[in-house]
């Protein structure tokens, strides 16, 4: 199949399993360059597994084309190196390391010192408090701060695509709104494409251009966010509100 026009990431027939349990069974997914895509669904629908399958964090089959390149043997290290930033479930905070060390490790694959510094300034522009608290152990930050640190750390990589796994998990409504507003800013100002897995469909649909609803490891519905949000049947059966 020819890649779609303007696609940054295109996954076809993605499967992934944990031992005997098949977590996703043939997911097709496209992230258009410069867009925000939401991956919705209930607990256990396969959102996390889809993200992990894209970066090869779990055993997976299917094709993934990223920026025109087919990723044959996918590993999380290589995914980071070609420009996919992954903010995992639970934020992936390196809790005993300082805020600053967390940021610097985000830029581990960026070899030019000047780009690291430029990137640093940009990220601190988004989160000025990072500079003030750079010596603090990252594990002592609040949940919302850790989520922002995780996003900041992923941005240090200068990713073309940012994968986020449930950024709203365990956070209050105000912080969740802030984080999603920030994702839109990052998307618009830095041109970073975003694929965000989220249980909180309302807030995700509000910023996403396009959405996929997963059900038991398959894509049940997909379409432009406005269409999904406006469709009563979809809302009742899949989004639960």
């Amino acid at each position: 199949m020819a890649p779609s026009e303007g696609a940054l990431l295109e996954a076809r027939d993605l499967h992934a399993r944990y031992g005997e349990i098949e977590a996703i069974r043939g997911v097709d997914l496209t992230v258009a360059r410069g867009s925000i895509v939401a991956l919705l669904g209930a607990n256990g629908a396969g959102k996390t597994s889809t993200l992990r399958a894209l970066t090869g964090t779990i055993k997976t089959t299917g094709t993934v084309v990223f920026a025109g390149r087919t990723l044959q043997r996918r590993t999380p290290e290589d995914a980071a190196r070609i420009g996919i930033g992954h903010v995992p479930e639970g934020r992936g905070t390196l809790s005993s390391l300082s805020v600053w060390e967390n940021l610097m490790l985000g830029a581990y694959c960026v070899s030019k010192r000047a780009s690291v510094r430029a990137r640093c300034d940009r990220v601190i522009g988004y989160f000025p408090w990072l500079a003030e608290r750079k010596h603090q152990p990252a594990g002592t930050l609040s949940g919302g701060e850790q989520q922002m640190l995780a996003i900041a750390r992923a941005l240090m990589l200068e990713p073309q695509l940012l994968l986020l796994d449930e950024p709203s998990l365990g956070l209050g409504p105000k912080i969740v709104r802030d984080i999603f507003a920030l994702l839109r800013t990052i998307n618009q100002q830095d041109g970073v494409s975003i694929l965000v897995a989220e249980q909180n469909a309302t807030v995700a649909l509000a910023v996403a251009d396009h959405a996929y609803v997963l059900e038991t490891g398959r894509v049940a519905v997909s379409g432009p966010s406005s269409e999904l949000a406006g469709n009563d049947r979809v809302r009742r059966s899949y989004l639960g509100y």
Binding site: E77, A79, A80, G92, L97, E101, L105, R153, L157
Partner: peptide
């Protein structure tokens, strides 16, 4: 720093591109 991170947080480190 990468070695410390890899020792303490191997999964998270891989996602940052560190070859653990």
């Amino acid at each position: 720093l990468a070695m410390r991170a890899a020792a303490l947080y191997p999964e998270e480190s891989r996602m940052l591109g560190i070859r653990v």
